[in-house]
Write a protein that binds this DNA or RNA. Sequence first.
DNA 1: TTATTTTATGTGAGTACTTACTTACTTTAT
DNA 2: ATAAAGTAAGTAAGTACTCACATAAAATAA
Lengths: 173, 173
Amino acid sequence: MTEKQEKIVKAALTLFANEGYNATSTSKVAKKAGVSEGLIFRHYSSKEGLLEAIMQTAEARIEQLFTPILWEKDPKVLLRKAINVPFEVEKAEFDFWKLLFKLKWEKAYDNPEKMKPVLEALTRAFTQLGYATPAYEATLFEFYLDGIAAALIKEQVIDQVAFRAFMYKKYQL
Amino acid sequence: MTEKQEKIVKAALTLFANEGYNATSTSKVAKKAGVSEGLIFRHYSSKEGLLEAIMQTAEARIEQLFTPILWEKDPKVLLRKAINVPFEVEKAEFDFWKLLFKLKWEKAYDNPEKMKPVLEALTRAFTQLGYATPAYEATLFEFYLDGIAAALIKEQVIDQVAFRAFMYKKYQL
DNA sequence: TTATTTTATGTGAGTACTTACTTACTTTAT
DNA sequence: ATAAAGTAAGTAAGTACTCACATAAAATAA
């Protein structure tokens, strides 16, 4: 990746995540990145190609965040780790998440496939903890995580420490 | 509202909800509605004005769905009713919800204000039921509502009867 | 009622501007 | 010397929106 390529990707991420994919023109991206518009197409062929390049790194990053959960044997620790995920996302990574959430609605760029292993790990944990309907518990738990992540991304005020404690207590962790 | 006005609004709702606001051009709306493009601007001044007209009816409809909750005295009945809300949305109304969810991300057209009375009613219910941190419980409950609504809208398969039963049991209703 | 004026509803062709993308060309690195 | 990286100025096809004009409906006058 050349210097200018990185500038393009960085500018596009910021714009796509904050203004939206459709609302961002390639000329805007070029201007923000400080490059000629043609260069975007030299490197990524199309606007869609640029998005895909960004999404690849975004998804890799998110997978990375969830991997420790997949391998965890102790169900209580697993749930604790899962709860922590949204709270551990750094501000520098917010744009990745924003983009992901936005695309879920803007382009039906959905990933139930991507989240499947997580859902399965959660189901296993709930099974081990003796919950009656572990699959539903896992689904609900995912709704919670989504909600928390969305709230944090949008910088809606949530007392992170207190809320995390609340979640721990709720699941007796 | 004239006949053609209704056609415009209907076409716009379908397109905005399914393709997205930014991805939908006024010419597309006119074509789908079977009217001249100029008519849209005669009636609604701008594309944004058309969206606002649609959003007004959408928000009214959603408020209507939540009103029975606000007035309910019995906390258990209140929660039961709240759990049911997403399941009671008719398919004919899906586009309203889709649009609402989409705009939440596409245009930060957010409504924490709109949902405030619901949140307060939920908090009251959890207080009455003796939950330790009713405000957090209410917040989390809203995440659940968001999660199922999103799943239903996207027609992800969920055994509605079973899931509802699961929720009832979870909150001991 | 009828005739006439006013108002609301509707159209089609235009507007200036933006869109994603191309192309011919130059600069830099290998 | 060759290939890759980069640019500036295009392109055709949209974009939201306007305007001059036509038609239908409603209000008023005879």
